[in-house]
Design a protein around this nucleic acid. Structure first.
Lengths: 361, 361
DNA sequence: AGCGTTTCTGCAATCGTTTGCAGTCTATCG
DNA sequence: CGATAGACTGCAAACGATTGCAGAAACGCT
């Protein structure tokens, strides 16, 4: 069907081996035949068959990225970054969706190595450590965002302890003392680390930890709603909520909307990880930015390094951290009195403060 | 490195050909040896090498989905649907991001056919018709969401004329007479068709078309902002805006927020295509749903059909339409008086109407 | 027993590349 | 002018599977 190396060789009246060497630029060809072959190949529209090449070389020029889903904005930008970087290097990205489900992850992983991918960036569920470890002998692997504790794979992580600390401190500085935390499952790296950052900020500020204010749960909007209700139903509800479980945000917003709770007047809200619409939401939602773009770039860097190094790429470093930063918008407010005056005035004060804060951070 | 067919054959003391036939189930093997080989293969952990198989059979078990980006919620659900369907059939999805850029699209396409993908679902830019047409000789292709006019490829489209008609009529029924339209580029199928649906609804209602109310532009938030400003700066601004350009929505919201325009009191807003947060936004945003999930499913159906039919899968049908439907939430409001009373009362009327409408549709 | 079927198995070619090895050619030097 | 190194080139064997063809085994039948 398509033009093969043999066709090119015949047209140029040389052997396939010469043609191969000339076109791949593997040294030993005379300048003249080399150029001639390149020209002929172009004329004939020759495109090397990656399958055949892959069979011989064991490489596929395919790099896989395995994420949980695509609704998460962080994964979106990661996918786009990874795709762009890889394409520039002549690789195709194989984007896979694992749904944070160990079984699916496991299936996908085997399919991927079957297909002889050249590298893998994975956001692990954390339940397939042994498999990942085994596969890492055959193909360079870099973990992203989460660590799989059962492996010693190179891992690129957000600095979640710092991010959670930053966010919590921000709320404390605004005068909040009762700060609700909605955080991810405690069997994930990020879940544990964000909790620890929160706790540390509290401790530093001399605020006693109150476990009724802390809720950990699955990465789903429903979780956010459930946790938010529990928090708001407390005898002494928090004056601020830190949603450190990205997927839970929508659920929290639904509950506050249902109950006509005005943000930030009645409740300050701080979220972890950005979403495109946070900026346009009214009030615009303040966040702790986990640096998705940087994370993806670093992961690609590390992967490429390992791929080059062919096995002996152990630099000793096992874990890379990408700093988080606070982006202030309009959903957090100074907490002064035990209960703010509930009146028409609050609205104007909101717009004032929002105008002041909406400057780029 | 890994177990090959040869290893299995040796272990079973048969030839590779017998092993191959037994494991692929290509008939001609005795029941006994067949079962024996299957058992041995499992014991040895044999996994067929898709690369080698692909070289011989010309198939890769890879199906590509080429979309513009991943920020668009419709593309997200399409990707997830396609992935799920294909995986169930033993295919791997190759998800590619083309950025609605003809050059990138073209590059990606050639890489994909190089990799001998078994099928392709593509949201075409519309600028690479000839190439697509040429490739369709080698690999089954189905176009999604947009048509490439330079081809006669099988295409799965949303029923945009109907959707736009539905949305516009809804606004008209609410009493709106001046309805702004922000729509996509007119060199895309959806752009043209949505405009036509809008025009038809107007005509049916006996409302004269006013071109100052119609703005077409690129698929970017910035476009939305620009167009919204133009509309609102009109001597007689519209009482409703129909944002039929999905990507423009955020821009429109920014402008209304900037100008303290209260939706739906001061302005009714209707958007095309859903986003996960539309439902949680205050007010929840009414939409015309393009049926992304159905579109994706249909596209997969058609592709599989073509892949089975091996070339002669021309059923005559070239175009499939998936119906749109209106989902009413809280961003559209009855328009009665020329100008509604602008006072504190408007707020309470908002919460009333929103409460009434927020029932599931 | 001999023969023709039928059923199963193995040989070997093939897919399109890459690559070790050996052979050919040119040029350079003694 | 002949030897020899050096630079190219071609042959052929891989890579791991599939598959047409022919041979072998088993079986039933007369």
């Amino acid at each position: 069907m398509s033009v093969t190396l043999k066709d090119v060789a015949q047209a140029a009246r040389v052997s396939v081996s010469t043609a191969s060497r000339a076109l791949t630029g593997t040294g030993l060809t005379s300048e003249r035949t080399q150029q001639r072959l390149v020209r002929i190949a172009r004329e004939l529209g020759y495109r090397p068959n990656p399958i055949a090449r892959g069979l011989k070389t064991g490489q596929s020029r395919l790099v896989a990225l395995l994420v949980h889903n695509l609704t998460n904005a962080s994964f979106q930008v990661m996918a786009e970054v990874v795709q762009a970087r890889l394409k520039a290097l002549g690789y195709q990205m194989l984007l896979c969706i694992g749904g944070d489900d160990p079984q699916q992850e496991s299936d996908t992983l085997t399919t991927l190595v079957d297909h002889r991918i050249d590298g893998l960036i994975v956001v692990p569920t954390g339940k397939n450590g042994p498999q990942l470890k085994a596969l890492s002998k055959d193909v360079p692997i870099v973990c992203l965002v989460r660590r799989d504790d059962a492996t010693d794979l190179e891992t690129v992580l957000a600095d979640d302890p710092q991010g959670a600390y930053l966010g919590t401190r921000h709320l404390i500085e605004l005068g909040h003392k009762r700060i609700g935390l909605i955080v991810g499952r405690q069997d994930t790296t990020s879940g544990r680390e964000r909790l620890s950052g929160y706790v540390r900020a509290l401790r530093e500020a001399g605020i006693a930890r109150d476990d009724t204010l802390i809720h950990a749960g699955h990465f789903e909007p429903e979780t956010g709603a459930t946790c938010a209700r529990k928090l708001l139903d407390l005898p002494r509800p928090p004056s601020a909520i830190f949603v450190a479980n990205h997927e839970a945000t929508l659920g929290v917003l639904r509950v506050t909307a249902e109950r006509n709770i005005v943000i930030p007047d009645d409740l300050s809200l701080l979220c972890y990880e950005d979403m495109p619409w946070f900026e346009w939401h009214r009030p615009a939602i303040s966040i702790v930015d986990n640096g998705a773009r940087d994370l993806a770039n670093l992961a690609v860097d590390r992967l490429l390094h390992r791929m080059d190094a062919k096995g002996n790429g152990n630099d000793g470093v096992r874990e890379y951290r990408v700093g988080a930063k606070l982006i202030q918008r309009d959903s957090c407010r100074q907490f002064d009195a035990p209960a703010p005056a509930r009146s028409g005035k609050s609205k104007s004060s909101l717009s004032k403060s929002s105008a002041a804060k909406s400057a780029k951070v």
